[in-house]
Design a protein around this nucleic acid. Structure first.
Lengths: 339, 339
DNA sequence: CTGAAAGCGCTTACAG
DNA sequence: CTGAAAGCGCTTACAG
């Protein structure tokens, strides 16, 4: 059904119906209520393309997923993030356009989506410390929100981030207070901005406590169980740490396996504290969680990114907005004073 | 830049430019080549909404992800599937619309996406044995392709599936040939169609070999490491099986942990054969893989679903098409004759 | 508070 | 092989 048909059906002009459905103030409140009810009843929905065309901007958020690069983003964290974006979009009546492209074609993809009018803005995911995307998007003139931060980018931009530095600083301090002195860090890829901030927090806490950092206790790579397992084996083979900070629950899972295979007991012989993205699929949420964790839901971050981006798309230009989420320190069964 | 401007720029009418860019046969091959090159050079891209409006159908595939239901689909398998869909869409110049809705609102979401003209068709994911979506979509008149099958649905429909029954039958036969007689099955949720077919294949192989099925050796639930771990502990505590079939690598990972914790050696004391969706994030791809597996890439399935759906959307009605993929039986280090 | 008309940027019969 | 014109289904100044 199209607007004209529906307008005839309810005995109003198309103009009035359109205004009522879009919540314009000119139309009588009773009329509006009646028309909205009638639309639902008859299942009338305005054609989105005609709408976008007439309004001049797409009510659509772009998510561009690079593929086949070194940081394969097709990962569980991305799925939960998208769920958060989706929830906010549903609330605000926005759509999500998902594009999968080889990493080197990302700039072209942004340009194409923008000039085709398919999206009103994009969310930039997994930014690197010196990520070129904000500068590119500024040049194209496409609104964006960064999930995380791009330290190397000049000028203001909107972002949503969790306070990674503080989380890892607090986490390290917690382990220090328990009496640990040999604390290892199994970090994500440190070309990624958030991974650097995490390392900074860890180093800051050690320095504040007068504990020297040992490069042999620091690793940086993929956030997978396999990587956690391999690094834990390496660490257990050498001058053993008494505690390990992990950048992701998947890493911690690998660490746990290595610990158990070595005949050690988690939380007694070796403490593990992990960053927990609170993924719906990898629950660490029992009354007393398996892993002590710095927990921050990536799903909430997705929703907030979408919220800020939609504000920018609908509100026109204006000062960029930043939002810093704090991680909780949740104590579970994997931490204790050193044996 | 819009068509009119671009047409003026190259000294042609908008009509001719449009036809050239859309590959219509009427336009001179030289002219076409010249116009295509010029479009790329000047960065002209037709506005997608105007295009959809004029053409009458959206070149967009809908992916509707239910959330918060019993089968939380926000999972690693979904991410790889989407990557496959995205690859095919990129090739065919289609877009992906991603919608996240509570499970009970799924029918409304389909109707809304369809009547807003946002999508040309949808992919139905994780179908249940008696899934109501095909019937609903038939009623709405929205083209669709099912990833998997809906045994309970009357009438023809398009689907792409892996031969789950044969995979599990072959897998079970392989274990039987090694000499196993007590073979357990840790399956996915058996309300899902594919899980039933897997169980059927397992039971058929046992029956063909004259081996009785033992309900105590069969489990069905979430495809997570936690579930695999819990079920493996249960199985190891009772009259122990000598081999376990798993419905997912994540389950197998949990089983492996339970096996190792029990002081047993995988592939010597207990054989494990798993269905492997070949996720990019959970590689089981070494020269000699950790897990012996029935392997079928879910990413390829995503690409094939997209291909069939795009054919249906652009080709108009016609007989539904089915595509059955076969899983490979890949032998790794987790299977051997019983001790 | 309501409506007739123009315009958003394309595609595609129709006419040449 | 090419072009002028109508039409896709909306929204929104403009006029009442």
């Amino acid at each position: 059904m199209k607007l004209k048909d529906f307008a005839k059906l309810v005995g109003m002009s198309a103009t009035t119906v359109s205004r009522a459905l879009n919540g314009h103030p000119e139309v009588n409140a009773q009329t509006r209520a009646r028309l909205i009810a009638a639309a639902r009843q008859h299942g009338y929905q305005p054609n989105a393309h005609a709408r976008f065309l007439a309004m001049g901007h797409a009510s659509t958020i772009g998510c561009v997923i690079p593929i086949g690069g070194r940081n394969e983003i097709v990962n569980p964290i991305y799925a939960d993030f998208l769920a958060g974006v989706g929830e906010e979009c549903a609330r605000r009546r926005f759509e999500i356009n998902l594009t999968v492209v080889p990493e080197e074609e990302q700039p072209d993809a942004y340009r194409a989506l923008s000039s085709k009018g398919l999206i009103g803005g994009v969310i930039v995911q997994f930014p690197r410390h010196d990520d070129p995307r904000p500068a590119l998007l500024d040049r194209i003139g496409l609104p964006y929100v960064v999930h995380g931060r791009v330290t190397g980018h000049d000028g203001p931009y909107s972002w949503v981030d969790v306070n990674n530095q503080r989380a890892f600083q607090r986490g390290t301090e917690f382990l220090l207070q328990l009496g640990h002195r040999r604390i290892a860090l199994i970090n994500g890829d440190e070309r990624l901005d958030f991974a650097r901030r995490r390392r900074d927090g860890y180093l800051r806490a050690l320095a504040d406590a007068g504990v020297g950092a040992d490069p042999a206790l620091m690793a940086s790579g993929e956030m997978t169980a396999a990587y956690g397992y391999a690094q834990a084996r390496r660490l257990l083979g050498g001058a053993r740490p008494t505690a390990i900070l992990c950048a992701a629950t998947m890493i911690a899972t690998g660490v746990r396996q290595a610990v158990e295979e070595a005949g050690l007991v988690l939380g007694r012989d070796l403490s593990v504290l992990t960053f927990d993205d609170d993924l719906s699929y990898y629950a660490n949420r029992e009354a007393v969680p398996v892993f002590s964790a710095m927990r921050s839901p990536v799903r909430v971050a997705g929703a907030r990114c979408a919220a800020l981006l939609i504000d920018r798309i609908t509100g026109g230009p204006g000062d960029p907005v930043q939002e810093l989420l704090e991680a909780e320190l949740v104590i579970g069964r994997s931490t204790a004073p050193p044996a």
